[in-house]
């Protein structure tokens, strides 16, 4: 289970059996060999500072689709996809964060949504006989974001 206060990284060096089931199950690895889940887990398990820092700065950690197949197949409870969430949280703090995600985050900070409410979509909803889309309570969302300092992280 993810725990944002007590990080699991570096992970226990004996945890991973190196069976490779995570990489075998990974849809991203199939087309992007630079993202190799087993290799990332093994690097984290070395407990060597340099290798772990390498993982945090690697742009390919963002290639995980979060399908969680690795988590289902891992016989040792490493839960790679959850571990990678932790890796990416730390990477983001160190500035390894794709522009597209910065953009999505700022859209949420401004509107509370990932998709803008456009005049075209208003017309389409009308045409379909749907009621007007109720906008989110943006004041509440922005208060929460200010409290967690998410705006500073993605700014």
């Amino acid at each position: 289970m993810m725990n944002f206060e007590k990080l699991q990284i570096p992970i226990d060096s004996n945890l991973c059996e190196r069976c490779g089931k995570c990489s075998g199950a990974c849809p991203s690895y199939r087309f992007m060999p630079e993202f190799n889940p087993a290799q990332i887990v093994i690097k984290l398990a070395t407990r060597e500072k340099e290798k772990i820092e390498d993982v945090f700065m690697d742009p390919s950690i963002w290639f995980c689709t979060m399908c969680h197949t690795c988590l289902e197949r891992c016989p040792e409870n490493v839960a790679p996809s959850h571990l990678f969430v932790e890796v990416k949280n730390i990477a983001a703090q160190q500035g390894n964060l794709p522009d597209s995600l910065k953009k999505e985050s700022n859209q949420i900070i401004e509107t509370g949504l990932t998709v803008p409410i456009s005049p075209a979509i208003k017309r389409r909803r009308d045409e379909l006989g749907l009621m007007e889309f109720l906008p989110p309570n943006i004041e509440e969302i922005q208060k929460i974001i200010k409290k967690t300092k998410f705006d500073q992280l993605v700014g």
């Binding site: 993810m2 944002f4 963002w62 995980c64 689709t65 979060m66 990678f84 969430v85 932790e86 990416k88 949280n89 983001a92 964060l97 995600l101 999505e104 985050s105 949420i108 509370g112 949504l113 990932t114 109720l134 989110p136 309570n137 943006i138 509440e140 969302i141 929460i144 974001i145 409290k147 967690t148 998410f150 992280l153 993605v154």
Partner: peptide
């Protein structure tokens, strides 16, 4: 009434777990 983005389980969770959980 007032609900917003869930938020996105892939992007936002990966950037900041705490914000994701709170929203």
């Amino acid at each position: 009434n007032g609900a917003g983005c869930c938020p996105d389980p892939i992007g936002i969770q990966s950037i900041d777990y705490k914000t994701w959980l709170a929203l």
